[in-house]
Design a protein around this nucleic acid. Sequence first.
DNA 1: ATAAGTTTGGAAGGAAATCTAACATGCTTT
DNA 2: AAAGCATGTTAGATTTCCTTCCAAACTTAT
Lengths: 108, 108
Amino acid sequence: MGKDMSYKDKKVITIGIVRDLTGLSERQIRYYEERKLIFPERSAGGSRKFSFSDVELLMEIANKIEDGIQTHDIRKEMLREQKKHNQEDVRRKMIQGQLNAQFGLRKK
Amino acid sequence: MGKDMSYKDKKVITIGIVRDLTGLSERQIRYYEERKLIFPERSAGGSRKFSFSDVELLMEIANKIEDGIQTHDIRKEMLREQKKHNQEDVRRKMIQGQLNAQFGLRKK
DNA sequence: ATAAGTTTGGAAGGAAATCTAACATGCTTT
DNA sequence: AAAGCATGTTAGATTTCCTTCCAAACTTAT
């Protein structure tokens, strides 16, 4: 239940490295956070920590910005995507639930 | 040929995070580097950068240290492992070379 | 058993990396 | 014209990291 994550999603990368990996400025990275496009964690002292997923997302964001899309609209797109995935997830879990009920697979 | 790497091998994690991930002290981590058990890269400013592989290796090292094995012997074990893998690699590549020669698969 | 080596902690002082907040600029959109 | 967007830059404070040293408690070798 403690749900562990792949390396890709572990928040372990500081902003300077993200800068080097993406080619974005730190200013841009912080701004995209402000606009709620990315959600780094924080260290005890307050430093941002990003994952490789965040880095990938930032590169996609960079592309859209280049195409003249505004952060506001990027956010909308992202929320739409998210919703779609959530729905798929719910469907998948419901089906699993049905199966469990029918065939009485017990957990643990 | 620019050989790209998986996330696991990218050197992107600073020592403080490695400390948190492994439970080792920074002192210990630096010492194990001094003893040539791990090989972090450096930022332009001189900060160490580790990969997830390094983190895993550090956890193995920590176990061996707990078992009373000395860094010197851990290093020997590691070199032995390394050599074995290199040999396997050479063998694999030689076989591949033979096949290419026999069947004239051309590269590119 | 004395000497030498191992492993770790801790302190000092300095440099690098990060943080927030503010102001400036050049564009868009309203 | 006013408001909002995206980014750069600066300043000062804080956090993180670096190396170098000394100390302590062990372990191994002579």
